[in-house]
């Protein structure tokens, strides 16, 4: 009975899970819009950016640019994972999911090492508006990437257990939507924070 209800839900034009993830992403967009709005106030309110107090600090644009490329590739591999499960290629699904998760982890590790360097140079959360908005905005996205990686690990576990097929793959689909959202958001934040 429960199984048939699940199948019925998955066969609807828009499953409950998909609708739920769309609403979640709407809320996430509003959260990031608020943060970006705050950044715009501070950035446009200061002719000098970074302010004089942080003039010696250079954000690592090149390394972060490479990191951005890695994250975009992970978005593509996640898309390929969904394609694989739609075509019942379960082994490919596992491979793509693991590759995507590894890229996500690599992104977080590189960003973490950048933060350590910036903190050592004196850019902290308490060091004025510049540090505050940088860590809040970029950190908020990093927390989302971390959440996406944890979610992906759960999906990988279920894929290993053979829970997904071309008939039933809502878990992969919702995780893909969330992952691609997090990936698509990053270039916007990167250009805004590192180049504006």
């Amino acid at each position: 009975m429960i199984h048939s209800e699940l199948e019925l839900s998955e066969n609807r034009p828009l499953s409950n899970a998909k609708l739920g993830i769309l609403i979640l992403l709407g809320a996430e967009t509003m959260l990031f819009a608020g943060l970006i709005g705050t950044f715009l106030v501070f950035r446009m309110g200061n002719d000098l950016w970074p302010p004089l107090s942080h003039a010696n600090i250079q954000l690592p644009r090149v390394v972060t640019g490479i990191n951005t490329v890695l994250l975009i590739i992970s978005g593509y591999t996640m898309f390929l994972a969904q394609r694989a499960v739609q075509n019942d290629r379960v082994k490919d699904l596992r491979d793509y999911l693991i590759f995507t998760g590894a890229l996500g982890l690599l992104f977080l590790i590189i960003q973490g090492s950048e933060w350590i360097q910036l903190i050592q140079k004196g850019l902290t959360l308490q060091s004025g508006v510049y540090g505050g908005i940088f860590y809040v905005l970029i950190g908020c996205h990093a927390v989302h990437v971390l959440g996406a990686v944890i979610w992906l690990i759960i999906v990988i576990g279920k894929a290993m257990a053979g829970k997904y097929s071309s008939i039933s793959y809502t878990g992969v689909e919702t995780c893909t939507i969330y992952w691609i959202y997090v990936v698509a958001l990053w270039p916007v934040l990167y250009f805004l924070v590192y180049f504006a």
Binding site: G26, T29, M30, A33, G34, I36, G37, T38, L40, V41, F42, R43, M44, G45, N46, D47
Partner: peptide, 22 residues
């Protein structure tokens, strides 16, 4: 002026967001 400009852009950006999301 710069702060006022910042507020303006921020308000316009955030005003557009609900419409974009919906």
């Amino acid at each position: 002026e710069p702060i006022a400009r910042g507020f303006n852009w921020s308000i316009l950006f955030m005003m557009a967001m609900p419409f974009t999301v919906v």
